[in-house]
Each structure stands twice: as structure tokens, then as C-alpha cells.
Amino acid sequence: MKVVKPRSEFLSNYEVLRHLKGIQKKNNWVFSDKDKKESNKRHRDFGGVNLEMVVKDSLQYLESSPCGVIGSIDSFKQLMIFLNQFELMKAEKLQIVNTLPRSMVLLYALVEECDQRFSEAESELIIEKINELYPVEEEAEGEEDGEEAEEAEEVEGEDVEAEADN
């Protein structure tokens, strides 16, 4: 074994996620109930147990990490093109697309000396763009559902009482 180029290219988490999903699909591996429905073909494991294990664990991590919300290559490209207008280091850009910061604190932690290199308005632009491309919806929806369910219960309760009165 000889390492020719230890670092020939950088990869973003999203690219790795896509590649590993490809491997999973090619081998018909089943990691969750959702996968089960999609494929009932024969499980292929020529790559070995270690490959299956690392793909499973990495996918689990990547899908729960912020880059799991990136839906398409197009939106990813848009974000990259947008970030190119700022004077960011390659590693910093990578960290932004991997972590998708939605708060100033996090952005400041990712970008060194962010307060000196970028104005507050510029930093806010980055966060706004991320929120625009990948809006956070789940939590808001969950709350609304909860409230509606409670209201529905109350209404039903009243109906029962009304019927009882009659």
C-alpha cells in the first residue's frame, strides 16, 4: 500500500451522503423500515461487513446532521454560488455547507475572526440565505398539530355534555 496523495480533494458531507446512498442502493442493504418497503431484492455483501457497518453508521449520522435536509443538487449549487461572493476560505465554506448555521453564534464559531472580516449585515445575509433555501418547518408544524388536537378534544367534550343535557 502506498498513499500517493493524502489529500487530493475535499468532500462535503452532502457528497459523501449521496455516494454512500448509492453504495447502499447498489447492494440492496436494508437499514430501516423505510428501506424495506422500497427494496425486496437480494442483499449483496461482497464489500464485507465492515463496509456495511460504516455505511450504515455514517448514513445515520449524516442524515441526522444538518446536511440531511439538503434536498437536491440544485439548491446545494445555489448555496455554493452564493457563498462564493464572500471571501471565505475553502475549509470555512465547507464547514458552512456541512453545518448550515442558523445562528450568529454558530457562524462566528465556524468562521475565524468573523466579526472583523465581515459586517453584521453580511453575516446575517448568509444565515438568511440558508433559512431561505432550507426552511425549518418541522417544529412549527408539530406545535400546531398539537394545539389543533387539543381544541378538537375540547369541542368533542362539549358536544358530549350538550347531548347529555338534552
Binding site: 498513499v3 489529500r7 468532500l11 459523501v16 456541512n98
Partner: peptide
């Protein structure tokens, strides 16, 4: 972070 490494092997 992930990187690509080039390796030669038999």
C-alpha cells in the same frame, strides 16, 4: 470533514 485520498495498492 471528509477528504479524498489517492492510494496505490496490489
Amino acid at each position: 470533514m471528509y477528504i479524498l485520498s489517492e492510494i496505490e495498492d496490489l
